[in-house]
């Protein structure tokens, strides 16, 4: 366990915080959860760096897919799920394509995002997309300018989707409600203000 430093000076206590890795501070079950959701044996990572070397986000940020894979295996759940870099993966799957251990680091990232979401840690834009789909069936819904353009092209103003057939929306909402997604999205977004 990390050494607690009850220094009176809080700033000093934080600056000199024990940074060692201690096994009891980690969650050995975390890797199993990630593997179950991500359907990839993340524990087989041998840290070669092919993933980060393939990553379009790595050169322009502190996002390191290899480090996430390492932290999964060390059970550093807190550190991972609260890391804003978790959301910088563009899901391009280059790492997955090249991983010599045949792992899917991208799917491990997706799994960890799912686990973060269970704690209501989700960036706003993800939730807004969910809300939009609940409302209209589309993540990017139609608008008036586009309707006019469609008509000019000889298309119907509304495409043959839930836009033209809103009766299908009920099914979509039932699926989302089954998972309580809309409710959660509303709640989180309201709390954030």
């Amino acid at each position: 366990m990390a050494v607690k430093k009850d220094y009176k000076d809080q700033t000093l206590a934080e600056r000199l915080r024990d940074r060692k890795y201690y096994v009891p501070d980690s969650n050995p079950e975390f890797v199993k959860e990630v593997e179950k959701i991500g359907q990839t044996p993340a524990h087989m990572c041998f840290q070669c760096g092919t993933c980060t070397g393939s990553c379009p986000s790595a050169p322009r940020s502190t996002y390191r897919i290899r480090l996430f894979m390492r932290k999964i295996n060390l059970g550093l759940e807190e550190e991972i799920l609260t890391d804003p870099d978790l959301w910088l993966c563009t899901t391009c799957y280059s790492c997955t394509d090249r991983c010599p251990r045949d792992l899917a680091p991208t799917d491990a990232i997706m799994a960890m995002r799912n686990l973060a979401a269970r704690r209501d840690i989700v960036p706003r834009n993800f939730l807004k997309t969910a809300q939009a789909i609940y409302a209209s069936g589309h993540g990017v819904p139609n608008n008036d300018a586009n309707r006019a353009a469609r008509v000019k092209l000889g298309l119907d103003a509304e495409p043959d989707t839930t836009h033209k057939y809103p009766e299908y929306l009920e099914g979509i909402r039932k699926i989302m409600d089954h998972y309580g997604l809309k409710e959660r999205a509303d709640k989180i977004l309201a709390e954030e203000g």
Binding site: W87, N114, N125
Partner: peptide, 9 residues
Amino acid sequence: AFGSIDLNI
């Protein structure tokens, strides 16, 4: 967007 929140949905 969707997969990140919950792959099952």
